[in-house]
Amino acid sequence: MRPILHVISGLRTGGAETMLVALCRSLQARGLPQHVVSLTRGGENAEALAAAGVTVHVLAPGGLAGAAASLLSLSRLIRRLRPAVIQGWLYHGDLFAALAHRLAGAPRRSLLAWGWRNSDIDHARYGRLLRIGRALSGWPGLVVSNSQAGADFHCGLGYRPRRLAVIPNGIDTVRFRPDTAARAVIRAELGIPEDAVVVIHAARLDPMKDHGAVLAAAALVPQLRFVLAGAGTETLALPPNAIALGRRDDLPRLYAAADIVLSTSAFGEGFSNALAEGMAAGLVPVATRVGDAGLILSGSGRLVPPGDPAAVASALADLGALAPIARRETGLAARARIVRAFGIDAMAAGFLEAWTQAGASLDPAADRGR
């Protein structure tokens, strides 16, 4: 069977990287060989992919000469593997996949697909990539966006994909689930009282995530406890009711110890994995109205305007004042929403359907006739 080749900018901890691992695991289990090209060295998810039996190829372009050499290496890999699909992830992965696809002479043999993972991105930081992507947006036979907001944003900038599919992220609802035992253990480890109402915010330190709004809101609701998890959070100056843990690899345990999951993204968020994972763990969600947050919540928890700490604090105060049983029932309803609409199998099936409809041959019998 012809493999699927994914091209991504790197394999560090992040939403897109997490979804790539989940998708590869699911497709590999279905008998579809998976290969991943990373454009940077290292990253925690490289080990996760290898453990799942996925072949990881590392190209590390540095400067123009390095980029040219990496493109040549990627084009040779494409000619050798003859993948059914070349799926780009994030802007750098999309562009490298497109250029190598052309260089390898593969347009008739392999479907080129791009992956959009953002909405309302910062033009000051990504303007050049957005302009290049817009100019080449007719090259891929398919573009997959993980949010309707992201699809609308890019099309509004003048991107003109030949075929567009919106496939929401898939959440591992077995890994992310309510866990009474983990709740007690992690609270004891962190020195959080059993009866405290805990808000968790899981995100790397980045302007897009707006940690300033988290800290300002926390200062307005001293009756609640805040746990911040994510690379760089350990450097923040915190109010007395907050702790920061830096990067953590045990998010399911941390979510299990909380009551409310908070997403304060100011821009750029397409589909928030942290928000959906927290909901899968049975937490009540509070999120800014950015990307597809409204679709994820679908009436659960609270939606608030971005960049408004007072609105965040008001929503948190209201939910924190609920009786514990009412808050628990609200969280379980949020979990049911994620289980129903955003499972990993649904995401994998969506990719397979989109690739097939765009012309990719994923049938082993068809491959033998080539």
Score class of each variant (00 low, 15 high):
residue 260 I to R: 11
residue 151 A to M: 07
residue 242 A to K: 07
residue 262 L to Q: 10
residue 276 A to Q: 06
residue 91 Y to D: 05
residue 318 D to Q: 14
residue 136 L to E: 08
residue 310 A to G: 14
residue 161 P to V: 04
residue 202 A to H: 03
residue 346 A to C: 07
residue 311 A to G: 12
residue 70 S to L: 08
residue 58 V to S: 02
residue 53 G to M: 11
residue 111 L to H: 04
residue 270 G to R: 02
residue 43 G to D: 00
residue 117 R to L: 12
residue 348 A to V: 14
residue 280 A to E: 11
residue 216 A to R: 11
residue 271 F to V: 11
residue 238 L to V: 06
residue 306 P to D: 00
residue 322 L to V: 10
residue 122 D to W: 04
residue 78 I to S: 07
residue 237 A to T: 15
residue 37 V to P: 00
residue 182 A to P: 08
residue 60 A to L: 03
residue 36 V to F: 05
residue 361 S to F: 03
residue 199 V to L: 08
residue 195 D to F: 09
residue 85 V to A: 07
residue 11 L to K: 03
residue 352 L to P: 05
residue 129 L to I: 05
residue 88 G to H: 05
residue 232 G to T: 02
residue 220 L to F: 00
residue 129 L to Y: 08
residue 230 G to H: 04
residue 284 V to Y: 05
residue 132 I to P: 01
residue 367 D to F: 11
residue 308 D to N: 12
residue 348 A to L: 14
residue 207 P to Y: 03
residue 297 L to G: 05
residue 232 G to S: 09
residue 127 G to A: 11
residue 367 D to H: 14
residue 350 G to E: 04
residue 131 R to Q: 12
residue 234 E to T: 04
residue 363 D to F: 03
residue 219 A to K: 14
residue 60 A to G: 05
residue 132 I to W: 11
residue 7 V to M: 08
residue 51 A to Y: 05
residue 260 I to N: 10
residue 322 L to S: 09
residue 298 S to V: 01
residue 133 G to I: 09
residue 162 R to C: 06
residue 265 S to K: 08
residue 295 L to Y: 07
residue 336 A to W: 05
residue 173 T to A: 15
residue 200 I to D: 03
residue 197 V to E: 02
residue 188 A to P: 01
residue 182 A to N: 12
residue 210 D to P: 01
residue 149 A to W: 01
residue 354 A to V: 01
residue 103 L to W: 10
residue 245 L to S: 03
residue 338 I to N: 02
residue 11 L to N: 01
residue 19 M to S: 10
residue 141 G to L: 00
residue 37 V to W: 01
residue 21 V to H: 02
